[in-house]
């Protein structure tokens, strides 16, 4: 197990050097996306033959930010400061498995290098990590004030009015955001491993 500071965008080579159990700190631009955002992306970007013209600008922006970039499964508590700028008040991870049906395609299409969340994801996402060179990073669930302190700036927000504050795409600059690699690009998932180990211990109690 090792510790790394990662500058976003992240290269495939760097991602391939990471293994389950490694601790990382992230620096750069991260974009949040959770349930409604994933459904929106599927319905708007991936389903039809072409992206509706009105949605093209946001697609282009996400494509730019996520090439080698990082997605964060998070629905923050936000506030406006005295000058009317958004800031993150409380911003821990949300449960990631709900995005399992979508994430393979999102990683493939956008070229994401890391997905931050909590609780881990399933075999399809693990396969995407292997196929395209990405990792799943686990943040500490509930440690929301602490994590917000690593979010230095809100750079923008998309779809806030349609999807609501928790579900919007928030573009933020982070410094030193801490997380643990729990799914790597070599097909290893800490979540799978612990599920099996704890199942054996459960059997012993039954």
């Amino acid at each position: 197990m090792a510790s790394y500071d990662l500058q976003i965008p992240i290269s495939e080579e760097t991602i391939r050097s990471l293994h389950v159990g490694d601790q990382v700190r992230l620096y750069g631009t991260v974009v949040t996306a959770r349930d409604a955002a994933h459904k929106y992306m599927k319905d708007t970007f991936f389903k039809g033959a072409a992206i509706p013209p009105a949605e093209q600008a946001i697609y282009d922006e996400l494509a730019r930010l996520w090439k080698g970039g990082v997605m964060y499964h998070c629905g923050p508590v936000v506030a406006k400061d005295d000058e009317g700028r958004w800031k993150f008040v409380s911003a821990g991870p949300t449960t990631s498995t709900r995005e399992e049906p979508y994430e393979y395609e999102v990683i493939q299409r956008f070229g994401l290098r890391a997905v931050i969340g909590k609780g881990g994801m399933g075999p399809k996402t693990l396969a995407a990590c292997q196929d395209y060179g990405a990792v799943y990073l686990h943040a500490v669930g509930g440690a929301a004030t602490l994590i917000a302190s690593y979010v230095k700036e809100v750079l923008g927000v998309y779809k806030k009015d349609e999807l609501g504050v928790p579900e919007a795409f928030w573009v933020v600059r982070v410094e030193g955001f801490p997380a643990v690699v729990t799914m790597d690009s070599h097909g290893v998932s800490l979540h799978e491993k612990l599920y099996e180990e704890s199942r054996a211990r459960l059997a012993a109690l039954m």
């Binding site: 998070c74 629905g75 008040v89 409380s90 911003a91 509930g142 440690a143 929301a144 602490l146």
Partner: peptide, 28 residues
């Protein structure tokens, strides 16, 4: 251990949230 690091983050977060009067978790 990763477990202990997680508890350190949790406890630091509890302290900060109380001091800053901000939600312990964003999911209220």
């Amino acid at each position: 251990s990763a477990a202990q690091t997680a508890f350190d983050s949790i406890l630091e977060n509890v302290r900060l949230s109380r001091a800053h009067s901000t939600p312990i978790c964003q999911d209220t």
